[in-house]
């Protein structure tokens, strides 16, 4: 298995669109060709070789030294592994359909938006609109898995349709905004207005919450489904420990009935 590494030559001159650096795409090129690949930068573009020193050989794994101004890392990824040492900018893993994207540091806005498959792991914190939707789309994340060790910003899982998001830390306001389905696990504290507009799907967290008026309190329940989910999580790598250990017992809130929804908030014991 060959690994191709991208080491930054220096600080990025501005926001760079790193979407061409996908394993399956690079595997078809020589290192020289890769160094000549243009990346969008501002109104123009810059070639890879101007920004990065390359080492190793193209294969199914790409390692990139991260930078908060490196946008679209792993956007459209369908296979292979991308590992980022450090942070990434906005829209990492957007529209990802397969493969593994590991960000060891933090991610900017809208990481994993419109994801359809694959696994996105973020070692640090994630910004707003994690696992959300593309601008104007009624459907957000359609599949795959997002695992965040730290906390995330507002609107995690907006309009999510399918898949799993697990955030080890706290989530910002409007978590699972207008969620269609899928599961959001919150290891820390859920933020304000969690579940607003949700039509279906599940938000799991620990401890008490004062839900929005659109959520009907369905009391404590024993849910075999939670054990099933926990069993499943135990088989996965990288699930934040705070999201594990569901006992099967939870207080259940149904809503958001202000939008005719029947999703659930599960405040787990």
């Amino acid at each position: 298995m060959s690994v191709l590494s991208f080491r930054l030559k220096g600080p990025l001159p501005g926001r760079v669109d790193a979407s061409p650096l996908l394993p399956h795409r690079l595997a078809a090129l020589t290192v020289t060709e890769i160094a000549a690949l243009p990346l969008r930068l501002g109104r123009g573009h810059v070639v890879v070789g101007e920004l990065f020193d390359l080492s190793g050989g193209p294969g199914d794994t790409v390692e990139i030294e991260g930078d908060g101004r490196l946008d679209f890392v792993g956007a459209g990824q369908s296979s292979g592994t991308i590992r980022i040492a450090g942070a990434v900018g906005h829209r990492a893993g957007t529209g990802m359909s397969g493969g593994v994207l590991v960000v060891e540091g933090s991610a900017g806005l809208a990481a994993g938006a419109a994801m359809r498959g694959g696994v996105l792991t973020i070692g640090g914190d994630a910004g707003n609109e994690l696992g959300g939707a593309l601008p104007g789309e009624r459907t957000g994340m359609m599949g795959g898995r997002i695992l965040v060790r730290g906390s995330c910003g507002d609107r995690v899982g907006e309009r999510m349709r399918r898949g799993l998001i697990a955030v080890g830390g706290d989530t910002g306001a409007y978590a699972a905004l207008h969620m269609n389905a899928g599961s959001l696990l919150i290891g820390g504290r859920p933020g304000a207005a969690t579940g607003h507009g949700m039509r279906n799907g599940t938000i799991l967290f620990r401890g008490e919450i004062d839900p929005l008026p659109g959520f009907a309190d369905c009391g404590l329940n024993q849910l075999p489904f939670l054990s099933l989910l926990d069993n499943h999580l135990s088989e996965l790598d990288g699930v934040p420990p705070a999201c594990r250990g569901l006992t099967g017992r939870a207080r259940r809130w149904l809503g958001d009935r202000g939008f005719g929804g029947r999703g659930e908030l599960l405040s787990c014991l």
Partner: peptide, 17 residues
Amino acid sequence: KLVGGRRYWRIPVMDGE
């Protein structure tokens, strides 16, 4: 719910689900 690629249904019944 879709867990690990398989879909499950949760149907409310009188002793729970």
